[in-house]
Design a protein around this nucleic acid. Structure first.
Lengths: 145, 145
DNA sequence: CCTTTTTGGTTGCTATAGCAACTAAATATA
DNA sequence: TATATTTAGTTGCTATAGCAACCAAAAAGG
């Protein structure tokens, strides 16, 4: 019997991601930041001064996008880039005052988002989901090598 | 204690989706179809003649993208659009011979992809993941209304 | 029947997302 | 130390993704 559309777990994951992204996008819109820009800021709020490459690795994304998103964040005056003193190819990315302050506004939004998403789901279930998703990533990454 | 980057399940879902999409993208590249184009074809292989709107609803996507992706599929001569006889606004989307034949090549690839992704994961775990992801979608959709 | 509302699709815009090819700086190696 | 290779970032390309505004056909309601 052929596997049908609804049987693919990857499609379920994809649809869920789109739904969640669309929701947080709307929540962040009043603050004039996009979801992926928010992810970069989230990293910087935890640890300032990362290089573009480090950000790309942490977000598991192509450095191309990171560079472009950082340009946008720079235009919005939320971050600034400074050439690394010991490596002339590399930039360190720092939050501006405005970028730091934005964090205080964003935090309650992402907090509430997380509560909404996880409502009615036990921590055991979340644990299973987390482990299974990690395993899936490892499965395809191993398959590539 | 503040929630950190790695604690957000939505980020985990997003990263996993990117990893899986990137993998299937590479697998489908030799057949010259992109992952989302493949999703549309997957629907049509199951049921031919859907309208653009029906496709958008099944894929839970904006009709704008569907229209554009269908244009691409039309350029590749995999589908054709015919005006609905009883509703002059609507198009029915049909697979071409070429589109039907492509299905036979794609099926083993998506099958193997699914096996790779799910390897080492029990069906009970998959069941939990499926239910939790569905619940998360419902959580945010309820929150919007 | 004629106006109003809804519905199916398109166009224009912005934001991801990643590949290929490139530049320039840093490192490794002959 | 001169050459080769690797690394950090940019530019150009294609493909998603969804919002707003729009057009035209269909349906609803008076």
């Amino acid at each position: 019997m052929k596997i049908s559309f609804n049987d693919y777990i990857s499609i379920m994951i994809h649809q869920t991601d789109l739904t969640l992204t669309s929701y947080i996008k709307a929540k962040l819109a009043p603050l004039n930041i996009a979801p992926e820009q928010n992810l970069i800021l989230l990293l910087l709020w935890e640890k300032d001064g990362l290089s573009q490459n480090e950000i790309a690795k942490r977000l598991n994304k192509d450095k191309t996008n990171i560079a472009r998103m950082l340009s946008n964040l720079e235009k919005k005056e939320l971050i600034s880039r400074h050439i690394n003193e010991t490596d002339g190819r590399s930039f360190n990315v720092y939050l501006t005052e405005k970028g730091i302050k934005l964090g205080e506004q964003v935090y309650p939004i992402t907090e509430e988002f997380n509560r909404t998403v996880c409502s009615g789901i036990t921590s055991e279930e979340l644990q299973v989901v987390n482990e299974v998703l990690l395993k899936m990533q490892q499965n395809v990454e191993m398959s590539v090598k």
